[in-house]
Computed example of a mutant assay.
Amino acid sequence: MRNISDVIEGYLKQVIELSEREYIEIKRSEVAEKFQCVPSQINYVINTRFTPERGYMVESKRGGGGYIRIKRIRLHQKSDLIAGVIKHLENGATQSMAEDIVFRLLDEEIITKREAKMILSAIDRSTLLLGLPLRDEIRARILIAMLFTVQFQSN
């Protein structure tokens, strides 16, 4: 069974896809009411599932007329996305950051589910039994090497 975070994420992604604009604006309290959860649950979903690494930009305005704007970042070519991700990895990659990147590549259909599983296994902290910050540097290097391969094959 899916948890509430998965359900909220799915709902927001569906609203984004059906939107005629390039973004959606939501009120945290309204979404929380719809799913009968606390507003902080909405914050959690937005902060963890709608990150730049996953291909989203989030803006918020506080106050009475406040809103949260979620915009899907779409690049024109797959190679542009890969190049942007590689540049983002230059300073290393945490486990969650790397996972978000892999999920975005999967969402953008740049890699298959099988490839995503292999990448995630290779960059997992249980595979890279090293101390920080070396582990994050090695994780980024492995991911960059794999992305160069994907980028070369997609051209």
Rank of each mutant, 00 (worst) to 15 (best):
M1D: 10
R2W: 13
N3M: 09
I4V: 15
S5Y: 15
S5P: 03
E9Y: 12
G10V: 12
G10C: 14
Y11Q: 05
K13T: 12
I16N: 01
E17N: 00
E20P: 02
E20W: 00
I24L: 10
I24G: 06
I24N: 04
E25L: 14
E25A: 12
K27F: 01
V31P: 08
V31G: 08
V31H: 11
K34F: 14
K34C: 13
F35G: 06
Q36V: 13
Q36D: 15
C37Y: 00
V38F: 09
S40F: 12
S40M: 14
Q41K: 11
Q41E: 13
N43R: 15
N43G: 14
Y44D: 14
V45A: 07
I46R: 04
I46D: 06
N47H: 14
T48K: 14
R49M: 13
F50E: 01
F50A: 02
P52A: 08
P52Q: 11
E53R: 07
G55N: 10
E59H: 02
S60H: 07
S60T: 12
R62S: 14
G64E: 11
G64F: 00
G64W: 02
G65L: 02
K71H: 05
R74N: 10
L75A: 04
H76P: 03
Q77I: 04
S79C: 05
L81I: 04
I82D: 01
A83K: 11
G84T: 09
G84R: 09
A93M: 01
A93K: 04
T94L: 07
T94H: 08
Q95D: 13
A98E: 04
A98P: 02
A98N: 00
E99D: 08
E99G: 00
V102D: 05
F103S: 10
L106Q: 10
D107A: 10
D107P: 06
E108K: 00
E108G: 05
R114N: 08
E115V: 08
A116D: 04
K117P: 08
M118W: 08
L120P: 01
A122K: 02
A122I: 06
D124C: 07
R125I: 09
S126C: 13
L128F: 06
L128C: 01
L129S: 04
L129N: 08
P133C: 01
P133D: 09
L134I: 07
L134M: 03
L134K: 05
D136Y: 00
I138V: 15
R139P: 01
L143D: 09
L143Y: 11
L143T: 06
A145H: 15
M146K: 10
L147M: 08
F148L: 12
F148D: 04
T149N: 02
S154N: 11
S154M: 11
N155L: 10
